[in-house]
Design a protein around this nucleic acid. Structure first.
Length: 992
DNA sequence: GTCCGACCGTA
DNA sequence: TTACGGTCGGACG
């Protein structure tokens, strides 16, 4: 065992008791054998082996052992005969499970360890210290406080039932003392369940306080006379010896003689058939199915193992499994130990292999639209629902009348399942379409009638509801947020889902888009029917309810079929590439959060917008006249081509830069430069541009997005359209509402709260610079943020030696531009452009910046190197952004990719932080009883906007600020504090 | 009707 | 110097 290895030590005995009491009674169907603790144990182990990365521990074990108590006779009885004397016999139903859990451990191919005369805790302590000394990390899978004394920077505990990792801060938070003082604390408080006496009248609070004051138990006992409280002093003095004995009882031994050394605990590949045999014997159908699927085994052909059940104490006797020991000896290698990520040893498959073989399998088993079924009656639908429940996995897709989920009316639903109900082990996929609201008679004056052969909508939805809302059946969809919203508007709230689009996004952000047709081409080599081939395009297109049901079946069922196939390929890739945690924690939970935000919308005051449109029209017309006056002729000011001809041709003004197509640029930058030379026309054109931009893009367009029923504006958020992990907003884009100019800000006054409410805006202060200070670990930046001082002024002061007091604004402005430039992967060319200075001067600035902050240069270089080596970069949470062209032979293309790769971890980490905040907000508001009166409406990259009842503003604001400021925890402990500013007002302008 | 470039609004 | 989406003009079919 060596540095980088990670040893998991499972407290088997502790887990048995905990699971037995926490998990409801469960009996084997065939004979009533109680198996609840066994079930809890197996599920926990499976989760740890398959995707520990995906739990709060966040890492995959390289070594793992399950430790049990051998017997109740231990050295502690010799020290204190009353130790554990008050233990009553275990419950009747628990007794047979002791032996079963040892069987389970062996079925998982794991070492099962116990040593005579010692408790499991002592063995765990011994292994933990040995592993730590070898430089490895350790996770003790237990929540027993008796083990907390083992926690160090390298040794953590893990509460599997709560999915909570326990580290040094958690111990301090719970007990008021650091782990190394737990022994003294327990010695003083005693333990009634183990009959450890302790000092009467001393509980954890008092003990912690005394340890804080005196340092440790011995010092306390020596100086007990100094204690002021009479009763407490006497108690301690009288029971000093009892405390010393207690200390011996609670202190864990780290010198237990061990039969298996650390290297023997290396994780072996799973033996799929062996494990399935045991699980079948226990009759755990769900877990059997999961294991079979992951191991690519056919559970149907594996016989249930014969598991003897011992009902007596013999079950707790020594029963080290010789075969598992031999297997360990035969394979002593510790490096690159295959993590038991569900890879079956028998099939020799890793998840990556599985993804590949499934893709290959589909190539040999192509999509066949002739097998698709149209569901036309309730019994047939119920058959499909039952089959989906049986397999626990169903792909589904909704067909509607609109791309806008807030307007869409449900027209039909398609389903796809793996057909291992009728033919077990088969990978055949069956797909069906359920038409619900198709019409006949296109062009009919009556608008067409309801088509024959459709189950009434209400009956069909009732039949589907149980399936779609069942948390034990996984629903798979492509771009699930759409279907989630459509179904929610039809009274069904989806539970338990996966989204193939988001899986692709997590795996391949930066490698093209994640639309279904593209993914189908890429992974299945199949081109699905194009929507326009079914519904037509342009003027001759029809809504889906007017599509013939047979044609609709081919199209819709194919979508579900393709979605299920994509899931089968992408799901194992997530595990293989270590991205399950990102997908499950940062991506998938955001789907309902965003769906709810989209559904809520925000009120926009049409009167205000209409008045602004009028004002802008007047001002623009006036500016237009002046432009014609100054130009001496009328032309289309909005045409850069015509404008360029006037300015640089006829009027002979000096052209600035050129566009990609060779035209003179007429950008605002160029026009500003000309205006600075004294030419009046360019200034007017800039004014005109601003006025018409505000009018056409905002004041004229926004009212068209007001929903006819809700009277609110419902933007759409895209989860999968940026490379970095940011969201994007469209129809309308509410992430680019003007704020920089006074004229533009007026538009924000039209975004208002409903009566009796306020809009609350909470935004991160300088989040990207804080992330930069964290990732590049820049002392001056960290200090400045810790002290809460002006970061740009500090930068200017460092670079130019100008005191912050009385600093000229121009100096600060330049430093600010440089700070942003750094985040964007600075170049002298870009900085010169931004600051309108010479490129050589910009180069000097950058050089000086790197001299003052050498860590920045290091960060940029190491990021580029990483990107070149891997083809991607990662955020602090592990999200990846791919840059496949970073090795391009085109120097400017390469440089562009390098800058983007430098920016992505910063922008992306900030995006991840606000995602985490958004996911946590709803539960936090719920916990404080605010969720009814405080609703999250919008996200603008570093800002969240809520609508809050007037009486709830004061309560909601600190909850929101707290969640946002701590959103990186506990996954990442930032070296820089995050700061959030919040305000509430009647409109967005005043709240921001 | 559809596509692309130029431009500009946001973080 | 990063990341987006919307509008317009203008070219193409």
């Amino acid at each position: 065992m060596k540095k980088g290895d990670h040893l998991f030590l499972v407290d088997g005995s502790g887990f048995i008791f905990r699971a037995f009491h926490a998990i409801p009674a469960l009996n084997r169907k065939s004979d009533g054998l109680p198996v609840n603790a066994v079930s809890g144990f197996c599920n926990m182990l499976w989760k740890l082996l398959r995707d520990a990365r995906n739990t709060d521990v966040g890492v995959t074990p390289t070594h793992l052992a399950v430790i049990f108590d051998y017997s109740s006779t231990t050295f502690r009885k010799e020290i204190y005969p009353l130790y554990k004397a008050n233990r009553s016999a275990p419950p009747e139903d628990l007794i047979p499970q002791f032996g079963l859990i040892r069987h389970a451990t062996r079925a998982f191919n794991l070492p099962c360890i116990e040593t005579e005369g010692f408790e499991a805790d002592d063995i765990i302590a011994t292994y933990a210290r040995q592993a730590e000394a070898a430089g490895a990390d350790v996770t003790v899978v237990s929540s027993d406080k008796d083990l907390m004394q083992l926690v160090t920077a390298n040794v953590h505990m893990y509460d599997a039932m709560k999915d909570k990792q326990i580290g040094i801060p958690d111990v301090i938070e719970k007990w008021g003392v650091p782990p190394e003082k737990m022994i003294d604390l327990q010695a003083m408080t005693g333990d009634s369940t183990d009959n450890v006496p302790g000092i009467p009248g001393i509980g954890p609070k008092t003990a912690a306080q005394l340890l804080e004051e005196f340092g440790d138990l011995e010092t306390l006992l020596a100086r007990a006379g100094e204690i002021k409280q009479v009763k407490r002093r006497e108690n301690i003095l009288a029971n000093a010896e009892l405390a010393r004995v207690s200390r011996q009882l609670v202190e864990l031994r780290t010198d237990v003689p061990l039969d298996m050394d650390l290297d023997a605990l290396v994780l072996e590949p799973q033996d799929g058939p062996k494990l399935i045999g045991f699980l079948k014997a226990m009759e755990f159908t769900t877990l059997t199915r999961r294991v079979a699927e992951t191991c690519n085994c056919d559970a149907g052909t594996i016989e249930a193992a014969v598991v003897s059940v011992e009902w007596g104490d013999a079950a707790r006797g020594p029963d080290l499994d010789a075969s598992s020991t031999a297997a360990v000896d035969a394979n002593p290698t510790t490096s690159n130990a295959a993590p038991a990520s569900g890879a079956g040893a028998a099939s020799g498959k890793t998840p990556a292999d599985l993804a590949r073989s499934r893709a290959d399998g589909f190539a040999a088993n192509p999509i066949d639209r002739s097998t698709y079924v149209t569901i036309r009656d309730l019994p047939t639908l119920e058959l499909w629902v039952a089959a989906a429940r049986e397999t626990g996995l169903v792909a589904f897709d909704t067909e509607t009348t609109s791309l806008d989920p807030m307007q869409a009316e449900l027209v039909g639903v398609s389903l796809a399942i793996q057909d291992n109900v009728l033919s077990p082990g088969s990978t055949t996929i069956r797909a069906a379409y359920l038409p619900l609201a198709h019409k006949t008679g296109i062009g009919d004056l009556l608008g067409g009638g309801h088509a024959e052969g459709q189950i009434p909508m209400g009956e069909a939805l009732d039949a589907l509801r149980g399936l779609l809302e069942d948390p034990s059946v996984l629903k798979v969809a492509q771009n699930l947020k759409y279907d989630y919203l459509v179904m929610k508007r039809h009274g069904i709230t989806l539970q338990a889902f996966d989204d193939t689009m988001l899986m692709s996004y997590v795996l391949d952000a930066g490698k093209g888009n994640h639309g279904m047709d593209g993914l189908s081409e890429k992974w299945l080599g199949h081109t699905p029917i194009a929507y326009k081939d079914v519904a037509g395009s342009g003027k001759s297109s029809v809504t889906f309810d007017l599509v013939d049901i047979d044609r609709a079946t081919a199209y819709a069922a194919e979508d579900a079929d393709v979605t299920l196939r994509l899931w089968l390929v992408l799901k194992p890739r997530l595990a293989a590439e270590g991205l399950t945690r990102i997908y499950e924690r940062l991506e998938r939970p955001l789907v309902p959060v965003l769906a709810h935000m989209e559904e809520r919308g925000i009120t926009v005051d049409r009167q205000i917008l209409s008045r602004l449109s009028g004002e802008l029209a007047q001002k623009a017309a006036a500016a237009e006249d002046e432009v014609y006056e100054l130009a001496g002729e009328r032309f289309n000011i909005g045409s850069p081509k015509q404008l360029g001809d006037i300015l640089f041709g006829r009027m002979g003004l000096p052209g600035g830069s050129k566009t990609k197509t060779g035209q003179w640029s007429t950008s605002a930058q160029v026009l500003e430069d000309l205006a600075a030379e004294g030419a009046p026309l360019p200034r007017k054109i800039v004014d005109w541009r601003q006025l018409t931009k505000l009018k056409s893009t905002y004041t004229d367009a926004l009212p068209g997005y007001v929903h006819p029923q809700t009277k609110r504006v419902h933007t759409g958020y895209s989860l999968a359209s940026t490379t970095t992990g940011r969201l994007s907003s469209s129809e309308p884009n509410l992430q680019n509402i003007p704020v920089r100019t006074a004229e533009g800000r007026k538009i924000r006054t039209a975004f208002i709260s409903t009566p009796g409410h306020k809009l609350l805006s909470a935004d991160y202060s300088q989040i990207e610079l804080r992330v930069l200070a964290h990732v590049a670990d820049i002392p001056q930046l960290r200090q400045a943020f810790a002290d809460g001082i002006d970061i740009h002024a500090m930068t200017a002061s460092e670079m130019f030696g100008v005191p912050v007091e009385g600093m000229p604004s121009e100096v600060r402005r330049r430093a600010k531009a440089i700070n942003f430039g750094i985040i964007y992967g600075i170049s002298a060319f870009g900085l010169a452009n931004q600051l309108s200075i010479e490129r050589s001067e910009a180069g000097d600035y950058i050089k000086r910046y790197f001299e003052r902050f050498p860590g920045i240069k290091d960060y940029m270089e190491s990021t580029k190197t990483f990107a070149r080596e891997h083809g991607y970069v990662e955020t602090i949470f592990g999200r990846r952004a791919h840059y496949p062209e970073i090795k391009s032979s085109n120097p400017s293309m390469r440089a562009f990719n390098e800058r983007a790769a430098i920016n992505a971890p910063i922008q992306g980490s900030a995006a991840d932080i606000i995602r985490r905040a958004m996911i946590q907000i709803e539960p936090a508001l719920n916990a404080t009883g605010l969720s009814e009166r405080c609703r999250m409406l919008l996200q603008v990259h570093d800002e969240l906007i809520f609508e809050v009842g007037d009486d709830a503003v004061d309560a909601a604001m600190p909850v929101i600020v707290d969640v946002m400021e701590n959103a990186a925890m506990p996954a990442v402990s930032m070296r820089v504090p995050l700061k959030v500013d919040a305000r509430a007002a009647h409109n967005w302008d005043e709240a921001h």
